[in-house]
Design a protein around this nucleic acid. Structure first.
Lengths: 143, 143
DNA sequence: ATCACAAATGCAACTATGATGCATTTAATT
DNA sequence: AATTAAATGCATCATAGTTGCATTTGTGAT
């Protein structure tokens, strides 16, 4: 992790009026070190020295503040990824594709793919959309 | 519940070589009585006389056989709905829109809306899609 | 620098969801 | 009615997530 990356996270916490603590910076470091979302169980394993409850609380505030977003995989397990942009407190812009590999179970946030337009039946008012795809990821297809 | 409906469920169980037992017919009756998906906790409440474990096992076989499909709501709670068509063992065709109301938390399966086409980045092979929308449902909008 | 205080963490305990092993019951077939 | 595989019920366990409270720590003011 570079100096600059670390400063970026500290700045991020400042922005949201959150104290710059070890556990919080570690969560951000762990999540940003991967190109896929991180599951709650994985994260718990990576944060051995941090209390389980603390981790849950960190994930909750980060989500509330729009720093990370939560994705449930095919098994209903919570996965977390750092928001790329546009997210703000209590209003996520999570309108991209989430790809869940059925082999390795990884969750990819494909931010570059915006959702195609479509209509809802009368009476429904939509606030947010997420498209989920399941299948096999590039890594698993190679093998 | 009409005679005909009951027969339909018994036929459904026959089709999949499942014994026509009380608990199974009751699950089907409960789920079909609603126009929305039923959450696991709700279902557990509705099936008071049936053991919790039995319910889980019924839901699992039904899902494996393609009789019902599982949808996770915004809170990660499992919801179940009877498949309308096209589902077969180990291969769901769940390619419709799931609408999760942020007020009443109900999950609607909007089967009539098929998903628009879109492309995946190279290397990804998709098998299934589901589009999730969240917002307010017709019932909650009226109030 | 250090003081004071709110915020964050850690710990204990609890709830809920879901799974597994095994004994008992029941649906289907004869 | 008898047989048997399938299904249910019960006990127990595992994991995810929450709450209350004591302790620690980051931060802003002195």
């Amino acid at each position: 992790m570079t100096e600059i990356t670390n400063n970026r996270f500290e700045h991020l916490l400042d922005l949201h009026h959150l104290k710059k603590t070890g556990p919080r910076l570690k969560v951000l470091a762990m999540m940003s070190a991967k190109n896929t979302a991180t599951s709650q169980p994985d994260l718990e394993g990576l944060m051995e020295d941090v209390d389980r409850v603390t981790l849950y609380r960190i994930l909750n505030v980060f989500e509330e503040k729009g720093i990370i977003h939560k994705i449930f995989d095919l098994n209903g397990t919570a996965n977390y990824a750092i928001c790329t942009s546009n997210c703000q407190e209590h209003h996520h812009h999570d309108e991209h594709l989430h790809f869940n590999c059925t082999v390795c179970n990884k969750v990819y946030c494909l931010n570059d793919l915006s959702l195609p337009a479509f209509n809802l039946p009368p009476g429904f008012k939509a606030e947010g959309f997420t498209l989920y795809a399941s299948g096999t990821c590039p890594q698993c297809n190679k093998k």
